[in-house]
Each structure stands twice: as C-alpha cells, then as structure tokens.
Write a protein that binds this DNA or RNA. Structure first.
Lengths: 140, 140
DNA sequence: CTTGACTGTGTACCTAAGTACAGGGTGTAG
DNA sequence: CTACACCCTGTACTTAGGTACACAGTCAAG
C-alpha cells in the first residue's frame, strides 16, 4: 500500500481472499476494471476493489456464474441505459434471487426434519425420514 | 417406460431436464446408484431417480458442487453411521444453507433499494444508489 | 427381415474458472 | 551495488462438469 491508499495486486488478492492470478484473470475478463498503473507499470487498485472481489466470490458461492455476476455489477454503470431499464433488469435479478432463497428454504426444511426427527442412536440406514431428502417440495 | 414402471436412461434425462450423457456421467461419478439392467444390458431406473436428478440440478444452481451434493445425498444412506452422526452432519449443512440465505437476502435488499430508489427516467450512470451494490453488508 | 430409433461402452473433446510458470523488470535494505 | 521480494506479460496447464462421437448391439413396425 502506498501513501495515497492505493493497493497492489497481491494486496488486493490477499484482502479479497483469492489467488494473485485470479485478480489478473478478473481484470482480463472484465470483472475488474483496468486500474491505473504506476510509472513502472504496477497496478494501483483502489481499496474499494476489495469489496468488489469479495462480492464476486460470495455471489459465486450462491450459484451465480462470472457472466451473471458481471451483469449484476453492470447494473451500476450501464452507460447508455435508462433508469427504467436498470430497474427492469434489477427486478429480474431479484426474482432470480427469490427463487434461490425459496429452494434453499425447502432444502433446509427437509434437513431440519431429518435432523430433528431422526435423532437418537443406532444405525441410520433404516430411518424413513432420510428418504425424503431428494424430494421436490414443488414440482416445477 | 416398461410395464413395471422402470424408465430408460433417455427417459430419465428428459424428465430430469438434463442431457442423456449427464445421466451416465452421474452414474460413473457415484451421484446416481448403478441401476439394474435388462437382459440386453439396458439401464432400468426407478421413477424416483427423476427426483434425485432434479435435486442435483437444483442444488447445483444454489452453489453446491457435485461433491457437496454427494455428501448431502449420503446423509440418507450412510451405512455405518449412527443417527447422532447423521444429525451432526445435517446440522453443518443447515448452517451452510442458512449462510447462503443470509447472503442472498443481503444481495436482494441492495437490489430492491437500487430498483426502488433509482426509478424514473434519464441516464443511470450518475445514480448514487448504484454505488452500493458491491457493498458487504457484513465484513466477514 | 430389414430399417430406424434406441441403448451400450469407450474415448475424446469442450467450457468455465482458475493456477502455474518462465523470463524479465523494479525497488529498497543492508 | 547487490540481494531479495515484488511486479509485469505471455503462455501453458489444471479441475470440474459435462458433451460428443464412433462403433456396435437391440427391438418394434412395416
């Protein structure tokens, strides 16, 4: 880190919890904007980049592809788009997220039932509750 | 499908919403148990396999890897494990799921704010709310 | 009894998302 | 001024999760 608060590639990687090469990969693929460079050509990231990297990793854990994450992030800076357009796209993403939350809730419910009803000791293989795990709460 | 209700590989693929080859891939990697075969060597899946395949796909959309999904499904049939053990592992998965739900809620909240506050017309690029999208609700 | 739609195995190929160098410049502490 | 820890670019390799054949057997309809 230098006096102006800018951070290096490895610093960003460390604070973002990712590999050094991943940062360069994200820049190449446009997930991270090309940062300004020092006289020697060193990348100078803003501290806010750390949040961006973490956001990317978290969204990934939630099942979004890098392409989808790029779309999410693009909502912020869409240059030629109107607010109404941003709104429409945001609402699509919201619906998407709500669907994920619903599915997770269904999975959780099944597991809670599994864990609560099926407690005690003895072999687990003959527990009838276990059978329900792969059940679709809602056929879709 | 034959008279005993067993279904073919392609039938399972179609109903599960995946590629034919994916079914064989899942069998190879142990996500799907090796089904009994007809005299000619054709796979005969039970209709319940459809639910299993769908469960796998859905869990994947929610950010679980096939390896993790295998663990989830293994809770059902863990042969040498006690119920207390199954319970412990189920609870770990539940915590995992709760974390995902929390993160999704935070993402949704940001997007809802984005969509609600930033409505109207005009270019979207100078909207201050958009800046908050990559914000961590909780630094972790 | 052949033809066309399936099924099987095996192997090769593909995309997404990294990860790992090699080969070379930079910068600062001793 | 030289070590040593960084940084750069470019290219190649890897892993997960499929997909796509080629080549061969099966089976129901005409």
């Amino acid at each position: 880190m230098n006096k102006t608060g800018q951070i290096s590639t490895s610093e960003l990687a460390k604070r973002g919890g990712v590999n050094l090469e991943t940062i360069r990969y994200y820049e190449r693929t446009g997930l991270l904007a090309k940062p300004p460079r020092s006289a020697a050509g060193y990348r100078q990231f803003s501290p806010e980049s750390v949040r961006r990297v973490r956001f990317i990793k978290r969204a990934q854990e939630l099942g979004f592809s890098l392409k989808e994450i790029k779309e999410l992030l693009a909502l912020r800076i869409a240059p030629g788009s109107t607010r109404a357009d941003v709104r429409k796209r945001a609402e699509a993403k919201i619906a998407d997220i709500e669907g994920k939350i619903e599915h997770l809730r269904a999975m959780k419910k099944t597991l809670v039932r599994l864990s609560e009803t099926c407690c005690g000791s003895g072999p687990a293989s003959d527990c009838p509750i276990l059978e329900s795990l792969s059940l679709d709460e809602k056929e879709k």
